[in-house]
């Protein structure tokens, strides 16, 4: 039977509680993984591994977080993502809301895109694709 959005959220919440040592009540839909839950870069690898296990899915490197875009000089100028870079990010991150990031485009602000809801949407899209 397909998981409901609430089921997906509950499992994602548990993954983040386990991976980040956060409390249940901190892991709200809008919570930012880095700013609010204290995630560090290596935690994203841990989160990916745990999501795969929890949902029995396969997540390729760069699929949840397009890590190589921000390291690519053709997409970043003076610490800001270019128009081309934004187009790539939108294409690679259909599960995320990048509008807010579009306002600053600062590479340093990129991690704020990742909220609990972003992860839920990402997992949901993976499950929908089967």
């Amino acid at each position: 039977m397909a998981l409901t959005q609430d089921d997906v959220f509950s499992k994602v919440q548990q993954v983040l509680v386990d991976a980040l040592g956060a409390d249940d009540d901190e892991v709200t839909t809008d919570a930012k993984l880095v700013a609010d839950l204290g995630a560090e870069s290596i935690d994203f690898l841990d989160i990916v591994f745990r999501l795969e296990k929890a949902f029995n899915i396969k997540i390729e490197q760069g699929e949840m977080i397009p890590d190589n875009v921000l390291n690519d000089p053709q997409y970043v100028t003076d610490g800001k993502v270019t128009d081309n870079g934004m187009a790539v990010l939108r294409q690679r991150l259909p599960h995320a809301n990048v509008d807010e990031f579009d306002a600053s485009r600062r590479v340093d602000d990129f991690v704020d895109i990742f909220t609990v809801n972003t992860i839920v949407q990402f997992v949901q899209s993976k499950l929908d694709k089967g």
């Binding site: 870069s41 290596i42 690898l45 841990d46 591994f49 490197q61 890590d67 921000l70 390291n71």
Partner: peptide, 12 residues
């Protein structure tokens, strides 16, 4: 434990 292959780290 979790290990990183650091040449493929996310921060570049």
């Amino acid at each position: 434990l979790i290990f990183s292959h650091i040449d493929k780290n996310m921060s570049g």
